[in-house]
Amino acid sequence: MPAAGAGRNRRLTIILVIVVLGFFGFGFALVPLYNSFCKLTGLNGKTGGPVKASAVAGMKVDGAREIKVGFTSAVMPGLNWKFKPLHPDMVVHPGAITTTGYVVSNPSDHAETGQAIMSIVPGRAARYFKKLECFCFHQETIKAGEFRKMKLVFFISPKVPKDVRSIIVSYSFFPVKKRS
């Protein structure tokens, strides 16, 4: 009787330990799950990577609709840069490919590297904001005293919901720490 009981105990214990490990793994699985949830719902205003030019061939411009796009910028602590949109405000038609950009300068005495992170409000519009070219696709290194114009080519997908009339785009430059 005790031996049989011990065997049952061991079996159940092993099952429970496996369940614990499973939930530990689930904790890590939440990272990609959360990211896809964000992409789907536009939570945090995250947008995707570059769109290929071929993908937009034949896209129609919806001349009847106008969407106001505001651009803002931020430089996070650790970078000494000045960073501003070229055009703080513009009005675009859904489907129209638009070129704009940001200007950045580094008044400090040393080169610094940063990564721009984009965010959009309202979040619902994020998945319709498509970029063909963006300085945010890679890190930027700005030399001491350098002044640079950075290009952003984007369009707003014509599928964007009707009630989206105004969106705001933010780019924040984060310092990239070089591992020494």
């Binding site: 945090n44 205003g45 965010s119 959009i120 409000v121 309202p122 705001i168 933010s170 924040s172 984060f174």
Partner: peptide, 8 residues
């Protein structure tokens, strides 16, 4: 207010 992401 969240670093890197806009809220409104």
């Amino acid at each position: 207010s969240i670093p890197g992401f806009l809220r409104e």
